[in-house]
Each structure stands twice: as structure tokens, then as C-alpha cells.
Amino acid sequence: MYGRTGLVLLVVVAAIVWILPSYYTGLLTLIGLYALVTIGLNLFMGYAGQVSLGQAAFFGVGAYTSATFAVKANITPWLGMVLGAIVAALVAYALSFVALRLRENLLALATLALGIVINVVFNQWDFIGGTSGLKDIPGFTIGSFTFDQRAYAILAWALVAVGIWFAGNLVRSSFGRSLIAISAGELGAQALGVHSERLKRQTFVLSAVYAGAAGAIYASQASYIDPTSFSFLLSVNFVLMSVIGGLRSLWGAVIGATVVVALGQILQNVVPVVLPSARGDFQSFFLGVILIAMLILLPRGITSRLSEARRA
């Protein structure tokens, strides 16, 4: 079901990019990449019941890995994408030994802190550009064809289709059910022999793989990255996407990413007209308010309302 619908989405994207202005095609790519990150995040937060406030860091690790290999060693972004996913996975694996011992409050704090430490590394490590970042990152190519905005959108959504297919299989298997059991009653699950830490670790690493691969594409598509692209605010955005779509929902990730990106566009265009003094990342005010309002009014996300409507 997930796989087929993902494929349909991919076909739709591949069709509409030919009529969409290139600016909007770029946004479509961004939505796809964010959706990919959020699918991984939903596995970790929604299904396994954990918290990550540092997901932007894995996105950044993927972006920096691919970009650095491409800029410094002229390695193709195709390989860079795989390397980005692998390095993000390794970082997540190492961090999991710290983070996964903790619960709720402290886990949130630890992932937030680790995300910022990774951002400090981006800032301080001159080899990967330091504060000024990396410029002129080579794009994806097939033979002599260098990717344009359309090709990036199709690539991003192809990955979304694969990602949601894999995650969909996962959540309907014993693996996904064990995660739900862990989130509902970890000790009860452990008493049945469910190795909760091992399952949580695999999920955390998988979420980093999703984020890392998405980050690698982002680097090539944007052709320029610096540490501010992967800040704490982006992590909050990912949380918002999760919450808006519904934490325990895979399509919710796609919906959440779409809503947040669209909202960002609307705010960017409307607010300065109404309030000429608005500068900087003033959207964060609205993001915060929407996040709070969602959690109070619709804590299980938009998709919970949709599925209720379907049942009724």
C-alpha cells in the first residue's frame, strides 16, 4: 500500500515538474527531502516513542559528507549520497550509546545538545569550510546530463517512494510492532524478551540514514551549504512537520513537510507586506505558535483527523 501510493506520488511529481515554474519545482524538491527526514523521524519518535531534537544535524552530516567528497576529491554525488547516509548512520550509531540510555526530558535535552555540538563542529572545522561553508558543490549527473531542478525533484521523490515503502513494511512487521510495544510499555516489552535498546538503536540509525541521504541531495541541489543551513531551528522544523502530520503516521510526514514548507513560503511573502519591520527568521514565531496550537488542539496530527473522517 505504502509502496504503490509512493510510486503514484512519484509519477505525479514527475508529471507536474514539466508545467511547474522552476522556483516551485525547487520547493517540491525541498518538500521531498524534508519528508524523507520526517519519515525517519516519525519511526523514531512516533513509533518507538522517543524524542530527537537534533535531526537537522544528521541532515547536515549527510550534506557535508557528500559535498566535501565532491568538492575536495571530485567524487560523484551519487556515491556521495551513499557515503552521506553511511556517515550519518555511523554518527547516529556512536551517539546512540549516549542518547538511548535516556528517556523523554533528558533524551530531548541530549539530542538537542548533540545536534548543537555537531553544528559547532561544522563551524569550527576549517577543512569543511568553517563558518563560510562550502561553495560550488558539483551537481548530480547522468552521463553528460547535469541535473536541473526537475531532475532533482524526481530524484527526491523517488527516494521518498523508496523510503516510505521501506518504512511501511517496517511498521507493519514485528519490528514496527515491537517499537510500538516499547513506546507503550518499555519494561513490559523487555520482560517478554524484546531487546528495546537494540531496536531503538536500529531505528535511530535508520532515521539518520534517511536524513543523511536527503542532506546529500540538498547539498548538490543548493550547490552551497554553511552551518546555518542545519541549525537548531531546522530541527524544530522537523519536529513541527512530525507533529503537524501526526507522529505515528508515515503519510503524515509527507503532509507535514508540505504544510511547513508551504507555510514558510506564505509567511515569507505575506508578513513583510503587513509588517515591514519583519526581518530575519521571524517565521519562527508562527512556527512556534502553530506547534503549540497543534499540540493542544490536535495532538495526534492532521492525519488522525483524516482517518477519523474516513471511518465515520
Binding site: 514485528s174 510492532r177 515491537s178 510500538i180 510495544a181 507503550a184 513490559g188 516489552a189 517478554l192 531487546h195
Partner: peptide, 18 residues
């Protein structure tokens, strides 16, 4: 300890899969 989010059968399957 109940595994909210799962059905009764699925809860037993978790134990079997462990």
C-alpha cells in the same frame, strides 16, 4: 502493562517475535 496502539493479537505477536 498494555501495548496501546496494537491489537490484542499483535501484542501476542510481539512476544512471539521477541
Amino acid at each position: 502493562v498494555m501495548f496501546w496502539g496494537l491489537t490484542v493479537r499483535e501484542s501476542v505477536e510481539v512476544a512471539l517475535a521477541a
